[in-house]
Every structure is written in C-alpha cells, then in structure tokens.
Design a protein around this nucleic acid. Structure first.
Lengths: 148, 148
DNA sequence: CAAGTATTGTTAGATTTCTTACTATTTTAA
DNA sequence: TTAAAATAGTAAGAAATCTAACAATACTTG
C-alpha cells in the first residue's frame, strides 16, 4: 500500500479536529467544576498537575495561548483557589504558578476520568499497536518542534 | 516497553499543540493571500478542494466551527471570489459551497507548499514508519468518532 | 392532511482569544 | 558602568468563535 506525505497530514488534521473537543468536553460535563471555567482552565490545571511549579510564560506557551490571553486565565484560577502565584527570588519578572490542594483534588478527578475515557476509546488497539502509535507520534512531534 | 493509555493521550495532545499552528502559519506567511483571511478560511478552501461541492452545515462540522460562526466565514470567501453558493434544487434549505477557478488556483498553491512542508518534516521517517503512523491514527480517529 | 418535530442557515449578543503597546526587570556588550 | 536588547507580564481594543433564538423548509406520524 502506497502512502504519501499528504496522507499523513490528512490523518493528523482529522485527528486533531475530533479528539481534543471530545476529550475536554467529557471532562467538563462529568466533573463538578465552576461554570466560569472552560477548556483553557482545565488544560492549565492539567499541565501544572503533570509538570509542577512552572513560570507563566512557559505555561501559556505549552497550552498555546498568547501571553496576553493567559493573564486573565491565571487570574481566574487564582481567584477560584486552584492555583497560587509565587514570585521568583532571583528574577523579579517571573511568577511561578502551582496547584493548591483544591487544584490537586480537582486534577485527580480529571485524571481518573481521563483514564476511563482513553481506556474506552482504545480498547480495540492491541498493546503493540498502541506502542507503534505512540512512537510514531512522538517522532513526528519531535520533528515538528525542531523545525519550527 | 510498557505503555499505558495516558501515554497515548499525552502524545496526541502534544502533537495537536505543535503541528497545526506551525502548518497553517507556514501557509499564511508564504502565500499571496488577502489580509482578511485567516486559518479558518484556508481550512475551508482546503476542505472544499478535497471534497468538492459540499453543503454548508457539513463544511462547518468538518472544520469544527459552529454553524453560527461559519456563516460569516463563507460570506467572506464568496465576497473574495474563492467560492460560490449553489442552492439545492430539491431541498431549499441547503446551500452547497464550491470553489471557483480563483479558489482552485489558490488551493493548488497551498497544496504545493503543504507537500514541501510535510516532506521536510517527515524526512526522517521510513516508508514503513509512515504507514504505521497513518494506520494507527486512522484507527484512533475512527474510534473517537464512533463514540462521540 | 395536519400538527408537531427536526434540520438548515442567519442573526445578535456574550465570551474567548489575539495583537499591539507598555512597564518593569534582567541580560548583554561596548 | 551604562546603553541597548531581551524577557515577563499587564492592559486595552480588535477579531474570532460560541450560544441561543429565530425563520424557512422538510420530515413524521396520527
């Protein structure tokens, strides 16, 4: 079976459009989360849960939000008590963000649902297929990043 | 090597955040496109180039835009002369969209760049790796869609 | 056939995100 | 040391998208 590069990108685009919205919508529907929060807030908490204390500019970059858009997002999460802002002692420009206990509790709930969801969606793949999928995507991701 | 479902999704999320923006930014920077057009307009033309004449609601669904948001997008593309609206003879609610000659010319240019870009990004993958990547992603995409 | 229901597309107002300009701080280098 | 450049974050207005209500048309079913 012949494949070309267009096929790769068609698949990726396809994927992008389907997965993320389904994924985060599920979170928002099934968890007890304040109405004022949207997918961006969830993504932010999710990232902090995985990476721990992180400077604002780095978080905003990783969740693909301009820094100008991220300020109010962080502000709201602080307001809601899910994260705190911690000034860097050396570089006064920098604020680190990290989860509070309430934030950790919330992200734990999210991760539980996350696992269930992925479990359900990937039942059909064998273990070997999963590994191939992951390594292929990691390769491509690394390439993309390098070339940017 | 042990893998779990979390790995899959971390990879996918990672992928999503890097690829698409790089991809379409490249298009917008390198092509002679009216300033008023953004990624959404490009995606719309791209879709119509691949699928041909398509009802509005279907296009909006495929590019992940609410129908309410899509109306002005289609309007602008018509205004710019890249697509036309064609009423369905049987069902008077439906408007088909399709590319004009100008639209085809533009998407041809895009596809050329597209190929170059993908070529550059995927040089490192062997043909077999590409196939695995594609089939894996297609499987997952299909699953996602089914469960939604 | 009639009445209710679903679908397609539009509109208007709310929300989210982007862009640009700005301040404060840090780093670089002449 | 000091001037210039880079970086982190904020603010305000512009642009994009979403939501909800609506009009027109099509479908369903009693």
């Amino acid at each position: 079976m012949k494949t070309n590069n267009d096929d790769i990108f068609k698949s990726i685009i396809e994927l992008q459009h389907t997965i993320m919205s389904a994924f985060y919508k599920r979170f928002l529907d099934n968890l007890d989360i304040p109405d004022q929060m949207n997918q961006t807030h969830i993504r932010t908490l999710h990232y902090l849960a995985i990476k721990g204390s992180t400077p604002m500019h780095k978080v905003s970059k990783r969740i693909s939000l301009e820094k100008g858009s991220f300020t109010p997002v962080a502000k709201k999460l602080i307001e809601l008590g899910y994260i705190v802002r911690i000034k860097d002692a050396n570089d006064k420009r920098i604020s680190f963000l990290e989860l509070t206990d309430a934030g950790k509790k919330l992200t734990d709930g999210i991760h539980k649902l996350h696992s269930q969801y992925v479990e359900e969606k990937t039942k059909v793949l064998t273990g070997e297929e999963k590994e191939l999928l992951i390594s292929g995507m990691n390769t491509l991701t690394a390439l993309m990043k390098k070339c940017r």
